[in-house]
Simulated scan of single mutants.
Amino acid sequence: MIPMPARIIAVCNQKGGVGKTTLVTGLAEVYTQMMGKKVLVIDADPQYNTTSALGLSGPEFTLNDVLYGDESNNQKIFPGVAADAVLEVGEDWQSPNHSELGLIASERNLASRERDSMMAREHRLRIALKGVAEEYDIVLIDCPPSLGLLTVNALTAATHALLVSEPRVASVEGLAEIVTTIAEVQENLNEDIDIVGVVVNKVRKGRKDQDVWIEKIRTDFGELVLDPLLPDRELFAKAQAAAKPLKSFGSEAKVLRADLEQLARAIWKGSEA
Rank of each mutant, 00 (worst) to 15 (best):
V86R: 09
L87A: 10
E88V: 02
G90V: 12
G90N: 06
E91I: 02
D92I: 01
W93R: 02
Q94L: 14
Q94W: 12
S95D: 04
S95Q: 08
P96I: 10
P96E: 14
H98I: 03
E100F: 03
E100A: 00
L101I: 07
I104L: 04
I104S: 00
I104K: 08
A105Y: 11
A105F: 08
S106E: 12
S106L: 07
E107N: 15
R108F: 10
N109V: 07
L110G: 04
A111K: 14
A111R: 15
S112K: 14
S112N: 14
R113D: 06
E114V: 08
E114M: 13
E114P: 00
E114T: 06
S117N: 10
S117Y: 06
M118Q: 14
M119G: 02
E122I: 08
E122R: 06
E122A: 15
L125V: 04
R126N: 12
R126A: 14
A128Y: 11
A128N: 10
K130F: 10
G131A: 11
G131S: 06
V132I: 15
V132Q: 10
A133W: 11
A133K: 04
E134C: 05
V139F: 09
I141N: 06
D142G: 04
C143Q: 09
C143R: 09
P145D: 12
S146V: 06
G148E: 13
G148I: 05
L149P: 02
L149F: 06
L150K: 11
T151N: 11
T151C: 01
T151V: 12
V152C: 03
N153H: 11
N153Q: 13
L155D: 08
T156K: 08
A157L: 11
A157M: 08
A158P: 06
A158M: 05
A158R: 08
T159E: 05
T159L: 06
H160C: 00
H160R: 01
L163I: 14
V164T: 13
S165M: 07
E166S: 14
R168G: 13
R168D: 15
V169Y: 12
V169I: 13
A170R: 07
A170S: 13
A170G: 06
V172R: 03
G174W: 09
G174P: 03
A176H: 10
E177Y: 01
I178W: 01
V179W: 00
T180E: 02
T181M: 14
T181R: 11
A183N: 15
A183I: 02
V185H: 04
V185W: 03
Q186H: 13
Q186Y: 07
Q186N: 14
N188E: 12
L189T: 07
N190M: 09
E191A: 13
E191Y: 08
I193W: 02
I193R: 01
I193A: 02
I193Q: 03
D194F: 03
D194W: 04
D194Q: 14
I195P: 00
V196N: 01
V196G: 01
G197N: 10
V198N: 05
V198R: 09
V199I: 13
V200D: 03
K202G: 05
K202T: 04
K202Q: 15
R204P: 02
R204S: 13
K205W: 05
Q210A: 09
Q210I: 04
D211L: 05
V212C: 00
W213C: 00
W213H: 15
I214Y: 05
I214A: 03
E215P: 02
K216H: 11
